[in-house]
Write a protein that binds this DNA or RNA. Structure first.
Lengths: 152, 152
DNA sequence: TTGACCTAGTACGTGCCACAAACTACATTC
DNA sequence: GAATGTAGTTTGTGGCACGTACTAGGTCAA
C-alpha cells in the first residue's frame, strides 16, 4: 500500500478542523482503494482507468482527459494494462488515427470484483462508525462538494 | 496535477451512493492537494513528509512508519527534499546509526505557505457549497470516520 | 487534388516514487 | 568480545508522469 490512514503529524485525539478532517478522510479512502487494488496488483490510476472503461469504450485522448493525464502518459498506462490482458486496443472504425480502448472479459471481471470489494470495505467502515441518518448526511454533504465547479 | 476531480466514468448528474460520494470526494481533496503542491513543485508524498516534520524531528524509520513506506523508500524521498534544501539530516546524539530529519527554515516557510493555501482553497470550496451547520456536520462525520480503527 | 495544416497516438529520455535484497555501521546482549 | 539486532544506504527493477519529437491519418482550402 502506498498511502496511510494516519494523519501525518497529528496525535490521534485532538479535535480536527474541517480541512484536516477532509484531508485525512481522503487519505483514509485512498488508502482503502490502494489496499484493495494491491490485492489485484492494481494501482489507483489503473483502477480509475478500468472504472472509466466499465461503462464505455474510449480513445486515448478522451481517457487522458478523464484522468487528467497527458496523452503521452496514456500510452504506457494502457500498454501495461493491455500487456496484462485487462484492456484491449482496437482501431476506430471512423478514424484511422484513433484507437478504442475497452475492457477485456478478464478486465471486466477484475473490475467488478474490485468494485465489490471496495464497496464492501468502505461500507463496513461506515456502518461501524455512523448511524443510518449520519450516512445519509454524509452522502449528501459529499455529493454537494463533489458537484462543485472545476477546481479552484 | 495528477488526480482529477472527475468521477471516472459517471455522468455528473445522477445521484451518488455513499461509497461513490466518498471516493469522489477523496479525489477532489487529493486533486486540490496535488494542485497546491504543484505550485511549489511538491508531490503529495513530499507534502506529507513536510507535514510530519512540521511538529517534530524524526528518524527515517519513524517517518517511513507514518507514511507507510519502506525505509529504503525513505532514503530517496528525504534525499530529494534535502537536495532542494527543504529538510536536513543530522546525526542522532543518542544513536550513532540513526539520523534525525528536520525542516530547514526554507522548508518550514514553504510548508506554512502551502498549508495556508491548502486551507484557503478547501475552505473556499466548502463555504461556497455548504452552510455553517453543514460544515460542522461534515467535520463531525469525517472525524468519526478517520478515528476508526486501522484499515480493514 | 494536392499541399498546408491539424490531430491521435507512439517513442524516447528524464525524473519521481516504491519495493526487495544485499550491505555497512553502530548498538545490544549474552 | 562475539553473536545478534537495528538504522540507514545502495543497487536494481518497475510503475507512473512529463515534454519533445515523430508517424500516420484527417481536413481544408486554393
Amino acid at each position: 500500500m502506498t498511502t496511510d490512514s494516519t494523519p501525518a503529524g497529528l496525535t490521534d485525539d485532538q479535535p480536527l478542523n474541517t480541512v484536516d478532517a477532509l484531508v485525512q478522510l481522503s487519505f483514509l479512502t485512498q488508502g482503502i482503494m490502494s489496499a484493495v487494488g494491491a490485492e489485484y496488483d492494481l494501482s489507483i490510476i489503473q483502477i480509475r482507468l478500468l472504472g472509466i472503461l466499465r461503462d464505455r469504450q474510449a480513445g486515448m485522448l478522451e481517457l487522458g482527459g478523464h484522468l487528467g493525464l497527458d496523452k503521452s502518459s496514456m500510452t504506457g498506462l494502457v500498454g501495461r494494462a493491455e500487456k496484462r490482458g485487462l484492456v484491449q486496443r482496437s482501431p476506430s472504425p471512423h478514424d484511422g488515427r484513433a484507437v478504442l480502448v475497452s475492457l477485456t472479459p478478464l478486465g471486466r471481471q477484475l473490475t467488478e470484483r474490485g468494485a465489490a470489494e471496495m464497496s464492501r470495505r468502505i461500507t463496513g467502515l461506515i456502518e461501524r462508525r455512523l448511524t443510518a441518518a449520519q450516512r445519509t448526511q454524509l452522502t449528501e454533504l459529499a455529493t454537494a462538494l463533489v458537484r462543485a465547479q472545476p477546481l479552484t
